[in-house]
Amino acid sequence: MNVTVFVVLAPLAMWMFPVYVPPNSTATIYASLPPGLCNATGVIHVSQLVAIACVNKALAPTTVSGYVAVEYPKPPPPPSVPAPEAPILAVAAGAAAAAGLSHVASNRRELLAAPLAPIVARIKRATGEDPARREILRVVEQLGAATLAQIAKATGKGWGAVQWHVYVLEREGRLRSIRIGPMTYYFTNPKKAAEVILASVDPDALPLEDREKLDFLAASAS
């Protein structure tokens, strides 16, 4: 802060300017006041409350002019606290749980596959050459088209295990899928899948978009 002083002191009068200093801190005072009349001039370093005073001991009015500047040191910025690094297993578990909940709520397999893909790649590369996946392929080929629930029932495996194996098989191109209404069907033979799905739904009740998808599937090469 900076204070410009211009006062007229009456005889035997005093002018005071207090300088406050925060605890555990210092202040630098730059004063330009009449020496002899005032108790501060020049540069002064203080660490506690001080009062700059000018006293008129004369029997006539006295003019006091000059300035007082007070400078406080700027406190250093607080050190930044780095965010703790979450273990890879905790990140994987959180992503898998969030993906699983999203999948249950919306029945969209894409929400499960997207967050799991980079995690799985870091742990190991899963392949379709697995007895459980070969069994799933056999069931899907036999049924023509099947939902996750139908695959789980036919193989006797848990929903989560089937969901994971189907994701691996589809990623490697050994299974394909199509969403009709609220259901996602998995298949290997497009023509056979179209026949099975059309036989299990009411074609007249299907939206135009779903009917077009089935028509395109039926016209595809196996």
Rank of each mutant, 00 (worst) to 15 (best):
S177I: 03
N107F: 07
E212A: 04
R179P: 10
P131Q: 11
E135F: 00
L148N: 11
R138T: 14
R125M: 01
I119C: 07
E170V: 05
V168L: 06
A145I: 12
W159F: 08
N2F: 11
P131T: 10
R134D: 06
Q142G: 10
G128S: 13
G94N: 13
S106E: 09
S177Q: 12
M1C: 07
I123H: 02
A58E: 12
E71R: 11
F6C: 06
A199I: 04
A221H: 08
L111T: 06
V91F: 00
L208K: 15
L217E: 07
P75S: 13
D204R: 15
G173T: 09
A90V: 03
G36E: 08
K124I: 00
P78Y: 00
S102L: 14
S177A: 14
A96M: 06
S47E: 11
L12G: 02
P76G: 06
Y20F: 07
V70W: 03
V120R: 14
L137F: 05
P190C: 01
P61S: 10
P22L: 11
A53R: 14
I136F: 07
T184W: 02
E209Q: 11
A92R: 02
K153P: 00
L37Q: 08
G42T: 03
A149C: 00
R176P: 00
L208S: 14
S102Y: 06
E135W: 00
L169H: 08
Y186C: 08
G160Q: 07
A194M: 07
G181L: 12
Y72K: 05
E85S: 01
T184K: 05
I52T: 01
M14E: 14
P75A: 14
A219N: 14
A152R: 07
P23H: 10
L33F: 00
P84C: 00
E141S: 15
A126W: 08
P115I: 08
F6I: 03
G158Y: 05
S220Y: 06
I52H: 03
A117I: 03
A152C: 09
Y167Q: 07
S25N: 14
T41N: 14
S102D: 08
A53D: 05
I136V: 15
A149L: 11
I52C: 01
V8T: 15
L137T: 04
G173W: 09
K192S: 02
N24S: 07
P11T: 05
R176F: 12
D215L: 12
A219F: 07
I180Y: 02
V120E: 15
L116T: 01
A193D: 11
L217K: 06
E135N: 09
P115W: 06
H165M: 01
N107R: 14
A145M: 11
T28F: 04
C54L: 12
S102T: 04
T184D: 02
N189M: 01
R125C: 00
V201H: 05
E170A: 14
P35Y: 10
P78M: 04
I136Y: 07
P18L: 01
M16T: 12
F216Q: 10
P77F: 10
A98M: 12
V50G: 01
A218Q: 15
V196G: 03
A199H: 08
R134H: 09
R125E: 07
L137S: 05
Q163A: 13
E172D: 15
N189D: 15
K124N: 03
V70Q: 03
R109A: 10
V201K: 06
A51M: 10
V21K: 03
S200K: 10
